[in-house]
């Protein structure tokens, strides 16, 4: 088996309400995987559960294997060695993920000490190298600064430096550019792509922004209401989405070129996890749904071309609806 991470039938519920309904997910060494979906679909919870970062009231089952070792059975100490050492995670808001009263250089050297056993001058030099690597100008003079003295984009770079300090095999980036301005977002996306190649690590990019995912990932999983509904290589999936939800997400993105047009929303809203429909969770919002969909929950099944799909009545033709869209005026 060649997978770095293998997640099998991962389920999570909060207070008896299931929010993750059995996730199977593999991450190969060095690959760039995108996880997209709207808020509440479980894309973050999947990884928080995998890394044992959910609060105690969360009920987690299933297996998470890292290089064949089951993390779910691992003790806290072993798990702490994995987190930051083999799997690192960065979050949307760096100012709340970093320690506000600890100098940034110290926060990076702490990782180096815990995961690579570096101390003293060698730790400091390595920390400076990391700060250089993520593009913090004048790292030597800013080593002793606090996080509030950095801009949002630089704080995000520092969190990336901290995550990379343990030389992880996988970097989980949870909405890493969502809180940033457009021009800074472009810088950070670029940085993540460069670093992935440079450090030959796998990247899991969690985002609600399909377009951003398309630009930096090779493979994408689309999640809806706690399940993966479609999975496949980026180009194929984007050229021809099979699942009506994936298709709906694409159509809902306004375009920056071509004629101005009325946006195409997906009707309705994501179902409340407390009152999940018994059939397909998307059926109520789906214009292709039939009676069958309301009774049977579709399984994620392999498709030609290395793709997977959970839908009984997939989208037949690609991209022809767009031409019929009514235009403004």
């Amino acid at each position: 088996m060649n997978n770095l991470v293998e997640i099998r039938d991962l389920r999570v519920s909060f207070d008896g309400v299931p929010v993750l309904h059995g996730i199977d997910l593999d991450v190969a060494p060095g690959e760039a995987l995108g996880l997209v979906g709207e808020s509440g679909c479980g894309k973050s919870v999947t990884w928080l559960a995998a890394l044992g970062l959910l609060p105690g009231k969360a009920d987690v089952s299933g297996s998470v294997r890292l290089r064949g070792r089951n993390l779910a059975a691992a003790r806290r100490l072993a798990l702490e060695r994995v987190r930051g050492g083999q799997i690192a995670m960065i979050f949307q808001d760096p100012s709340s993920a970093l320690n506000p009263v600890m100098r940034v250089g110290k926060q990076i050297t702490e990782v180096l000490r815990l995961h690579r056993g570096l101390v003293g001058a060698s730790a400091k030099n390595e920390a400076l190298r990391m700060m250089d690597l993520v593009g913090i100008p004048d790292a030597r003079n800013r080593f002793g600064r606090y996080i509030h003295e950095f801009s949002g984009g630089q704080a995000q770079r520092l969190m990336i430096a901290m995550a990379l300090a343990g030389e992880p095999d996988v970097l989980i980036a949870d909405e890493p550019t969502t809180a940033l301005d457009a021009t800074i977002q472009a810088q950070i996306l670029d940085l993540l792509v460069d670093l992935r190649h440079e450090m030959s690590m796998a990247t899991v990019f969690i985002s609600h922004d399909l377009a951003a995912v398309a630009q930096i990932c090779e493979r994408v999983c689309v999640m809806y209401a706690g399940k993966i509904v479609e999975e496949g290589p980026v180009r194929h999936l984007f050229d021809r989405p099979y699942h009506p939800y994936t298709r709906g997400l694409f159509d809902a993105i306004p375009s920056l070129t071509g004629p101005r047009r009325r946006l195409v929303p997906i009707p309705g809203a994501v179902p409340d996890p407390r009152y999940m429909p018994s059939g397909c969770a998307f059926a109520l919002r789906c214009d292709r749904a039939r009676d069958f969909c309301k009774q049977h929950r579709p399984e994620l099944l392999p498709q030609p071309g290395g793709r997977q799909l959970a839908c009984a009545y997939p989208v037949p033709e690609a991209r022809d609806i767009l031409h019929h869209q009514e235009e403004y005026q």
Binding site: E38, L249, A252, I253, P254, P265
Partner: peptide, 10 residues
């Protein structure tokens, strides 16, 4: 979210 955003924009 994107799908809801389109509803409100329209």
């Amino acid at each position: 979210d994107v799908s809801i955003q389109a509803q409100v924009v329209n």
